[in-house]
Nucleic acid binder design. Structure first.
Length: 569
RNA sequence: GCCCACGUAGCGCAGGGGUAGCGCACCUCUUUGGUAAAGAGGAGGUCAUGGGUCCGAAUCCCAUCGUGGGCUCCA
């Protein structure tokens, strides 16, 4: 069995071959294998149109059927330049390669500069499908020309391809933008502005539940809650340095009584301002200040995406001030808290990254970087968490740990981040009095567990496909009277359940039960309680579960008890 | 921001140089129906916005705004 990456990369060659056959004027750039498939970048005078994909696929099938062998050849740089004399992108690659001997692969007359390996012959490529046409900068640099990229997916067998395509459909079904509209959770409107979220009643209710849980967990977890304004004098951002290194992410100044003010893109300067309101002692450390802080960042229009990337969002932020010797235990504590919080929302699989000192510009001494990085590393190990190291991936102000969660269909989302900051304590010149009676500089940690409420909410919607667990469901049960004469009883059931703290609604519309049930299922309401003559008579309710169907009839108190059990309360 | 595509009723979509249609949703009436869609009728759109071409623009052109797939960037 061929290696899947080899198959995908070979399929990329076959595609480029097919494209060249169909469009002789194209210049070819690069075509690697990627997760689930491959792509190839082309420079073509006119854009590809969607119908081209089918044509190219057909031509690819023809290339495959010829079963031409992939032939590897070693050539000198000079020979390579001759072979690719009409391919400017290949020439650029050749120029930049350091080796004197290069390899090319040839298949049925199509030659590509390539390290290989490849499948034996074209028939050995597996099942493939072209998916989309997109723009991509040559070598990923926005100063370079924009090429046209064709994405495809490729698998060893037809069954795997089908399975993958099915997964793509499933992802589409779960899309939080589609579900957000269907379930009336939120919307983003032209007349309000791109990347600015309107939370509708049900979405806002879920958000409140998330936030309440978060605040309680933080308060119990040793944090104090703070709250800070949305704008501040521009001076504050000069002090923090954001105006220097983050100005492209900030909205322009607004004038208030002759003073320039800015909308906040971060919460930290405010927390530092609170810190500075009085002298701090090591005895009160670690100080943990948490805030659901709404920030506004200028994100380029092309990067906006539903709730995942917006211009106004609420960070579940906190800043921790501590002494150097508290670093290890505090990071470990924060990590555990983070994992716990994610688990509470149903996420138990994650990828963890430790990002170390960047190569270029950075602040802080090498010793503090080393100490902090070691603290992050030992905490990860103490907590028994596996992690990968992103060498040089840290911010200029300090190393960090990122946690990316895996959702129900295996997709990865960046959520938690724990960052050490050597920059801002310095800039704000904050100190604490240690046991030696002298002023020392504290260490500061920024951390967000969910990342942003907006993104996390979007991930939650997709993770649960809109069918939120009982504790998060905006409506936990809907009562469905069969005929008008059952409405009084329906309302009495609703009152009983509401009094016990459950979120219930009565569907009094003049519709048949089947219709109401369908609608409740579509709205993904966990429980439907049907009441008709039988239930009025027996003083019970007929319970239907969103997931399990008809559960038969029972008393209201019994049902309430079962709900409480399910909620774990 | 960049490349390509798209923007028609609340939603999903047809149509396409001679001032608009379908399904669902909505409203009214009939119906009071037992676990995923009862029946009939009605209302609703200056075809994203602003310019231009044309006797005439929703349709063609330009710009702007927005959306989608990507690139770059990132919570």
């Amino acid at each position: 069995m061929e290696n899947i990456e080899t198959i995908r990369h070979s399929t990329a060659h076959v595609m480029a071959h097919a494209v060249e056959n169909l469009f002789p004027d194209v210049k070819i750039a690069i075509g690697p294998s990627i997760d689930d498939g491959f792509y190839y970048d082309f420079d073509k005078s006119t854009p590809f149109v969607p119908e081209d994909l089918a044509k190219i696929e057909k031509e690819m099938t023809r290339v495959v059927k010829k079963n031409s062998p992939f032939v590897r050849r070693e050539v000198t740089k000079a020979e390579a330049k001759e072979i690719f004399k009409d391919q400017p992108y290949k020439l650029e690659l050749i120029r930049d390669l350091e080796d004197e001997t290069l390899t090319v692969y040839e298949e049925g007359g199509f030659v590509d500069l390539c390290r290989g390996p490849h499948v034996e012959a074209t028939r050995k490529v597996g099942a493939f499908k072209l998916l989309s046409i997109a723009g991509a900068y040559w070598r990923g640099d926005e100063k370079n020309p924009m090429l046209q990229r064709i994405y495809g997916t490729a698998w060893a067998t037809k069954e795997e391809l089908e399975e993958h395509l099915h997964k793509l459909e499933e992802a589409e079904r779960r899309d939080h933008r589609k579900l957000g509209r269907e379930l009336e959770l939120y919307s983003i409107e032209d007349e309000v502005g791109a990347g600015l979220v309107l939370w509708h009643p049900k979405g806002a209710l879920i958000r409140k539940i998330i936030e309440d849980y978060w605040r309680d967990a933080h308060y119990k977890g040793g944090y104090d809650l703070v709250q800070t304004p949305h704008i501040a004098r521009q001076e504050l951002w000069v002090t923090s340095g954001h105006l220097d290194f983050y100005s492209e992410g900030m909205y322009g100044p607004m004038e208030v009584e002759g003073q320039p003010y800015r909308i906040k893109p971060m919460n930290c300067p405010f927390h530092l301002a609170i810190y500075k309101t009085r002298l701090r002692s090591y005895r009160e450390f670690p100080i943990r200040w948490a805030e659901l802080g709404t920030v506004y960042r200028f994100e380029r229009s092309g990067t906006l995406h539903g709730l995942m990337r917006v211009r106004g969002f609420t960070q579940d932020d906190a800043h921790i001030f501590l002494t150097p010797d508290q670093l290890d235990s505090e990071i470990e504590r924060t990590l555990r808290f983070s994992i716990e919080m994610l688990a509470a929302f149903g996420f138990t699989e994650y990828d963890i990254y430790l990002s170390t000192k960047p190569d270029g510009k950075y602040v802080g001494s090498d010793e503090s970087w080393e100490q902090a990085t070691n603290a992050l590393r030992t905490s990860l190990e103490a907590a028994g968490l596996e992690y990968k190291v992103d060498e040089g991936g840290g911010a200029f102000y300090g190393p960090k740990i990122d946690i990316k969660i895996k959702d129900a269909i295996g997709r990865i989302w960046q959520c938690s981040t724990i960052q050490v900051d050597f920059n801002e304590p310095e800039r704000f010149d904050i100190t604490y009095i240690a046991d030696d009676g002298k002023a020392h500089r504290p260490i500061m940690i920024h951390r967000a567990l969910l990342g942003s409420i907006e993104r996390f909410f979007g991930v939650l919607v997709e993770h649960y496909a809109g069918a939120f667990p009982l504790w998060l469901a905006p409506v936990q049960a809907v009562i469905l009277p069969i005929a008008d004469r059952h409405q009084d009883y329906a309302h009495s059931v609703a009152e009983k359940l509401s009094a016990k703290g459950f979120r219930v609604k009565v569907d009094v519309r003049n519709e048949k039960t089947g219709y109401k049930i369908r609608e409740a299922q579509v709205q993904k309401i966990p429980y439907m309680l049907v009441v008709g003559d039988r239930e009025v008579e027996s003083e019970e309710i007929s319970v239907r579960s969103r997931d399990l169907g008809d559960l038969g009839s029972k008393g209201v108190d019994q049902f309430a008890g079962e709900l409480s059990t399910e909620l774990g309360s």
